[in-house]
Amino acid sequence: MAVFTPVTLDDLIQWIPPFSLGKALAIRGISSGIENSNFFIDTERGEYVLTVFENLSFEQLPFYLELMRHLAQRGVLVPAPIANQQDQIINPLHGKPAAIVTKLEGDCQMAPAPVHCAAVGAMLAKMHLAAQDFSIRQPNLRGLPWWRETAPVVRPYLPADGQQLLRDEMAFQEAFAASDTYRQLPNGPVHADLFRNNVMFNGNQLSGFFDFYFAGCDTWLFDLAVTVNDWCIDLATGKLDIARVRAMLDAYHAVRPFSVAEQAAWQPMLRAGALRFWLSRLYDFYLPRAAEMLTPHDPGHFERILRQRVAHPAPNLY
């Protein structure tokens, strides 16, 4: 959500008429994040979010935006894409694909309590079930094949102990991905990036999930592991907060009960979730793209989380 492609109010005024949102009144860049150019926009019809996609192509984007439309129609709290008068939800802006979606109400909950974690767990399970009949299939583009490509690129930047950790964890995850247990895990469309800053709350009431642009088809357990690794930890150390973990897992399980295979896969999957974001943060930190408002994240955060998951098993799923 950094700004790589600047968009002015004059640009927006010329671009927005086919959306029937009235006149564009204001635009302001959103500085958090590092993948796309995002803006809050004010129109005569209300406030929306404009995204200019920096990496995803016109061919890839229907998966993400149609998934959001699919989920919204089934009662999952997500932003709804806005179509233009030709019912197109992906349109070029400055030569790049762009889209407008509804803006969720509330604020991100950056200091979650168990009540917030329970709400996220229940909605995540609802999302997984609601997406089962989504017709477009696309793999998680930051899954194991991407890890294989990225690990050798970032490894030289690490000290010796970090290089060894990366080698060991890649070998562990390769073996796990080839196991019978992994093949038995239920899967489908997942968010794959459900961090605290991608969820809105009004007080303790969850108002929605957003930023689906890392979504793909993967195991549901991977999605849950990524979420636990952000929502249910002490940020300074990466240690799990057991009360928050238990609240999220119990709420998820009440909506979609876990399988026996998922119980067996839980510890490896938490490590997989940590590895994925350690790799991406290493890449963004050492090989950054130019951006007008870029704030790269500390890769050491997910190295600490990975070391914690290797050394200290998490609570069981149920």
Rank of each mutant, 00 (worst) to 15 (best):
Q184D: 15
A274S: 15
R276H: 01
H301C: 11
P257G: 11
R246E: 14
Y182N: 05
F277A: 00
G203I: 12
L282D: 01
P299D: 08
A225E: 06
G300C: 05
N202A: 14
L206K: 07
N197C: 05
A274V: 08
Q263Y: 12
I233N: 09
H297C: 09
F201M: 12
A291F: 02
P189T: 00
F302E: 01
S179D: 03
T227C: 12
P257F: 15
G216D: 04
Y286D: 08
A274E: 03
R196G: 02
W231F: 08
M248E: 06
L221N: 07
Y283V: 08
V245R: 00
F201N: 06
L294S: 04
H253T: 08
L275W: 04
L306R: 05
L306M: 06
W220Q: 06
A236K: 13
R271A: 10
Y182A: 10
E292V: 11
F214I: 04
V245P: 02
L282Y: 06
P189E: 00
L282M: 12
V228Q: 07
R183Q: 15
M293A: 13
A243N: 14
A215P: 01
W220S: 03
R183I: 03
F209V: 02
A175G: 02
L249V: 12
L282A: 03
V190Q: 07
C232S: 12
R256W: 08
V190K: 01
P288A: 10
Q267D: 12
H191V: 04
A171T: 10
R271P: 04
D193I: 03
L249A: 11
L221G: 06
M269P: 03
D298A: 11
Y283G: 04
E292P: 00
F302S: 04
T219F: 02
G203K: 15
D234F: 15
Q173G: 06
P257R: 09
D223F: 02
I242G: 10
I305G: 03
L287A: 11
